[in-house]
Amino acid sequence: MDLAKNEDTSLKEQAEKVEKFLFSQETWETLGTIAIRVLVIVVLAAIVVRVGKLVIRRVFKVKMKVPLRQSERREQTLMKLLENTLAYVVYFSAIMAVLAEFKIDVRGLLAGAGVLGLAVGFGAQSLVKDVITGFFIIFENQFSVGDYVKIDTAEGIVEEIGLRTTKIKSFTGEVSILPNGTISRVVNYSKENSLAIVDVTIPFEVGVEKTEKLIENYLISLGKKNDDFINNPKLIGAQNFTETEAVVRIIAETKPMRHFDSARTIGIGLKKYLEQEGIEIPYPTLVTKSFSNV
């Protein structure tokens, strides 16, 4: 009997406390104040994010109007990256401020999150390295989508640059997917102008000097017709001699990665031009080391 009576008394006391809490003016004033502060924090966070994104877009919009602008894809990637970073930082700060309004120990949460983050970091070091390296590849414009690059054993055109991986497609169609953290050395063939090199074999019996003059005339006319050439192709003279022939070299500075097509244009066109002039020569040789940029 005494135990039941004590339980009834305890329940009545708890009910009275709940009733006093719910119908207390101080309680509703406190909750109202907290609600207003939370609302202000959320609104301010949204405004800061919105204004910050507008500023970032305005900066990149002005930059895109500059004549010497970089890759549009790179600029769009950087813009999105900065916008997302801004949103994460502002909203995280807003969440911490809201939790503080509810008297939650934010420092304890941050300490726990730090320990958890450290544990995750040890388990995902390669992922973090990939993301950081990818950010600097994009930020420093080491290479862009459409560039012809050589990264370790992968060589081809860059199809996609992400924060974690880079995709390179070779001429034969294979796509290499490289984690950004493994990229240590990059050869970018699209940054500067390229150099096309063509070797022409001239038999002595057709007349070396006469053929060289015809070659020079052809190169002058060719440079005016082809937009890939930066300057007129040049005949730089003999590179080698045998008992029956001389090998002369033609070089041409071209737009990035246009040296292959330009070298073929020079070789095929020169062969036809000399045949029309009555001079037979072997097909000109494209020098593969012309892959180097100038």
Score class of each variant (00 low, 15 high):
residue 100 A to Y: 15
residue 7 E to A: 13
residue 8 D to H: 10
residue 288 T to W: 04
residue 78 L to D: 03
residue 127 L to Q: 10
residue 30 T to P: 00
residue 277 E to M: 15
residue 145 V to Y: 04
residue 174 E to T: 06
residue 256 P to E: 02
residue 222 L to D: 05
residue 56 I to F: 11
residue 140 E to Q: 10
residue 57 R to C: 02
residue 39 L to F: 09
residue 207 G to H: 09
residue 23 F to Y: 14
residue 152 D to H: 08
residue 264 R to N: 14
residue 2 D to K: 13
residue 231 N to H: 13
residue 102 F to D: 03
residue 124 A to S: 13
residue 101 E to F: 12
residue 173 G to S: 07
residue 182 T to S: 15
residue 89 V to W: 12
residue 50 R to F: 15
residue 234 K to T: 07
residue 136 F to R: 12
residue 201 T to P: 00
residue 275 E to W: 06
residue 63 K to N: 06
residue 171 F to G: 08
residue 179 P to Y: 12
residue 105 D to C: 04
residue 184 S to T: 14
residue 30 T to W: 05
residue 223 G to V: 07
residue 235 L to M: 04
residue 113 A to W: 08
residue 149 V to P: 06
residue 210 K to M: 09
residue 258 R to I: 02
residue 198 V to L: 10
residue 206 V to S: 10
residue 8 D to A: 13
residue 106 V to A: 10
residue 76 Q to M: 14
residue 189 Y to Q: 08
residue 128 V to P: 00
residue 34 I to R: 14
residue 248 V to Q: 01
residue 15 A to W: 05
residue 119 A to I: 13
residue 197 I to P: 01
residue 284 P to T: 03
residue 253 E to F: 09
residue 223 G to C: 03
residue 198 V to H: 06
residue 257 M to I: 12
residue 204 F to K: 14
residue 101 E to Y: 08
residue 289 K to R: 03
residue 61 K to A: 12
residue 122 F to A: 06
residue 212 E to Q: 14
residue 150 K to F: 01
residue 255 K to T: 02
residue 229 F to G: 02
residue 173 G to K: 05
residue 223 G to Q: 01
residue 92 F to L: 09
residue 79 M to Q: 09
residue 1 M to F: 10
residue 125 Q to E: 13
residue 238 A to E: 12
residue 104 I to H: 09
residue 283 Y to R: 09
residue 169 K to T: 02
residue 24 S to G: 14
residue 262 S to P: 11
residue 281 I to L: 06
residue 247 V to S: 05
residue 280 E to D: 14
residue 228 D to M: 07
residue 217 N to E: 15
residue 173 G to D: 11
residue 131 V to F: 08
residue 198 V to Y: 03
residue 252 A to D: 02
residue 146 G to K: 12
residue 209 E to I: 11
residue 290 S to G: 15
residue 216 E to Y: 02
residue 130 D to V: 04
residue 254 T to L: 08
residue 290 S to H: 10
residue 234 K to W: 02
residue 162 G to L: 07
residue 49 V to C: 14
residue 266 I to L: 11
residue 202 I to C: 02
residue 123 G to S: 08
residue 59 V to Q: 12
residue 230 I to Q: 05
residue 149 V to K: 06
residue 104 I to K: 11
residue 179 P to T: 09
residue 25 Q to H: 05
residue 59 V to K: 14
residue 6 N to D: 14
residue 164 R to Y: 10
residue 166 T to E: 09
residue 226 N to E: 12
residue 116 L to Y: 12
residue 194 S to G: 13
residue 225 K to G: 00
residue 214 L to P: 01
residue 103 K to W: 03
residue 219 L to W: 05
residue 146 G to S: 12
residue 113 A to T: 09
residue 39 L to E: 08
residue 88 Y to P: 00
residue 5 K to D: 09
residue 53 K to P: 01
residue 137 I to H: 04
residue 290 S to L: 08
residue 279 I to S: 03
residue 205 E to M: 04
